[in-house]
Design a protein around this nucleic acid. Structure first.
Length: 586
DNA sequence: GCCGTTTTCGGCCCGACTGTTTTCAGTCG
């Protein structure tokens, strides 16, 4: 049973947690495991394969001889001696206590030593019996906060889709900007980096009167709990369960504060080390050489002062962007305005809400020059999928509309279902009449990895498939991605000239940023597609573009940045290749 | 435990806030 990158990451994270709980005195040893885990999770290559091929793991970053040996041990046995030993030493149940606010390794250890608490249940019981506040380092307030956190944990998930975050964010920014003492309120944090889900909102307010802003902030109607409140910083929880961290800074420090508050933590650490190496100090107030402040008003000034180009927020994950910023090799990221069209949309012929015409006009209103109509195929009964006759009629209808409409072209397409064995849900002679075929999985998500991979590889080999739709089938916060060997799929897509979709529905964002980066490196074009089921949902493209930017994609890496004339050969390339090879009749 | 414009040994990001304390450790971002 080959392990996945997530398994190696989990093992190292667990080692780090257990080392902390065990009272490891060298914090840098713990940090080494966490850093290696983070690098592995953003790798975009299959670690088990790298290990099997005896490749140099040093390239992952943060992995030396010792950690490399542990990875090989884990690959071979599923675990390693150190992990086993630590699990034996540290009571099970202590690691999950680390996830509670206010409980770190020190207090978790203390709880176990004094009250023999070794699970959340035991902790809850002790807290509600009032036994906690007698423990050194604990008091009544911490006791009740822990109790609340355990109960809240049971009812709420703690990450949010970007769209849900935005619904909370916009009115709150409005409220903050309406405070007279506010110069400007802006969003930072993982939302600004457009991570696919966010755990909280980080908001930065510039003002020369922090106290006044703080007083007004905590009066915001939607606040359920105030977790912390200081002179320049506060944390609250909104009614929907979303945490908001607010920071007030002087206007002339906005740049440094934005860098600091946008993160990621890993990126911040990386750039602070660079500052330090040059004899400077970087914090949320500015860049300092000795006592002298040399930068901080703008983000550009902060990066420039330590010899870096400004890094777009989406790239700030310490995945190579710092080195790229140092050497002038940052990619020019794709922008929403670069998209010339959209290659995945539905109408009311299947499960969409709007008509062909409305979808066409909606796309045109957004400045798009083409829109592929890709309704579902017959197999997806629940979506009223099209059979051969209905699809043939839709093709004629699109021809009529195209003759009538200007400044927008509809492409004739389908989102054809991938059957369990990798065959498609519509006959080849019909698919051959279409401009574009998006093939997607909507069933049998649970196949074993080898079988699922073979299923998808078969699809990529199909002569009429232009794009693999939402390749992993994941639904954020709901459904895990299918078990797939993405490295092989990307390699095959490259070989066959097939494109991969970055589905822009905020609950999909599929492929993710790491896989899109791997696709780019393999030379596979990515289709940023709305998968809109209504005219309004064409706006999904914004979310997809953000993930593409996180992946470091440029305009040239994205299929649908091309004008329509350049699109045809890319959609039909493999048919041409196969015709050249004589495998298909002209 | 990693790693090197400085270093093969000695560094390893930096500051705010809380709670429990009477000066600071632990936690968090």
């Amino acid at each position: 049973m080959p392990l996945h990158n997530a398994d190696f990451v989990a093992a190292f994270e667990e080692i780090a947690d257990l080392l902390e709980l065990q009272g490891e005195t060298n914090p840098f040893r713990i940090r080494a495991y966490r850093r290696a885990a983070r690098n592995m999770s953003g790798l975009g290559r299959d670690l088990a394969t790298m290990i099997a091929r005896n490749e140099d793991l040093h390239a992952v970053g943060g992995i030396g001889a010792d950690l490399a040996a542990k990875l090989r041990e884990i690959a071979a046995t599923g675990t390693c001696a150190l992990l086993d030993e630590l699990r034996h030493k540290v009571p099970a149940g202590l690691p999950e206590m680390l996830t509670l606010p206010g409980v770190g390794p020190g207090r978790a250890r203390m709880l176990h030593e004094t009250l023999h608490i070794d699970s959340l249940d035991a902790l809850r019981e002790a807290a509600s019996a009032g036994k906690l506040h007698a423990v050194p380092g604990f008091g009544e307030r911490l006791e009740s906060r822990i109790l609340e956190a355990i109960d809240a944990r049971r009812s709420k998930s703690h990450r949010f889709l970007l769209t849900d975050a935005r619904q909370n964010l916009e009115p709150l920014l409005g409220w903050l900007n309406a405070i007279p003492e506010t110069v400007e309120a802006v969003c930072a944090g993982s939302y600004r980096r457009r991570r696919e889900t966010v755990g909280d909102l980080d908001i930065l307010v510039t003002s020369s009167n922090a106290a006044a802003v703080m007083r007004r902030f905590v009066l915001y109607d939607d606040i359920e709990t105030v977790l912390a409140r200081g002179t320049t910083r506060a944390s609250v929880v909104l009614r929907g369960g979303l945490q908001v961290d607010l920071r007030v800074v002087a206007p002339e420090r906005l740049g440094a504060a934005l860098v600091y508050f946008t993160g990621s933590r890993a990126h911040n650490i990386a750039i602070r080390r660079i500052a330090q190496a040059q004899g400077m100090k970087l914090n949320e107030y500015g860049v300092y050489r000795g006592e002298r402040r040399v930068a901080g008003a703008t983000e550009e000034s902060v990066y420039r002062s330590i010899g870096l180009a400004w890094v777009p927020p989406e790239l700030r994950e310490d995945r190579g962007e710092v080195e790229a910023a140092r050497t002038g090799r940052l990619p020019e990221l794709v922008k929403l305005g670069d998209l010339r069209g959209d290659l995945h949309a539905h109408t009311n012929a299947s499960d969409g809400r709007d008509s062909l015409r409305d979808m066409a006009l909606g796309a045109r209103a957004r400045g798009l020059r083409y829109l592929a109509i890709t309704d579902h195929s017959r197999r997806l009964g629940i979506a009223h999928g099209l059979d051969a006759q209905r699809l043939a009629r839709q093709i004629d209808e699109i021809d009529r509309l195209n003759a009538e409409l200007d400044r927008i072209v509809l492409l004739k397409g389908v989102e054809v279902d991938i059957l369990e064995d990798g065959r498609l849900d519509l006959p080849d002679d019909l698919l051959s009449r279409l401009d574009i075929v998006v093939a997607s999985v909507h069933s049998h998500f649970g196949l074993a990895r080898a079988k699922q991979t073979a299923r998808i590889l078969r699809v990529l080999d199909h002569p009429y498939v232009s794009i693999l739709g939402h390749p992993t089938g994941r639904l954020l916060l709901e459904r895990e991605p299918m078990a797939l060997d993405l490295e092989r799929i990307i390699a095959r897509a490259a070989e066959r000239g097939c494109c991969l979709e970055l589905n822009s529905q905020p609950q999909r964002l599929d492929l993710d940023d790491v896989a899109c980066r791997a696709a780019k490196q393999a030379g596979v074009l990515v289709s940023i597609a709305s998968d809109a089921h209504s005219r309004g949902a064409l706006g999904n493209l914004e979310w997809g573009v953000a993930q593409a930017r996180r992946a470091g994609l440029s305009k040239v890496d994205v299929l649908n940045t091309r004008p329509i004339a350049q699109l045809w050969p890319l959609l039909r390339k493999r048919i041409a290749d196969d015709q050249d090879a004589g495998t298909i009749d002209s």
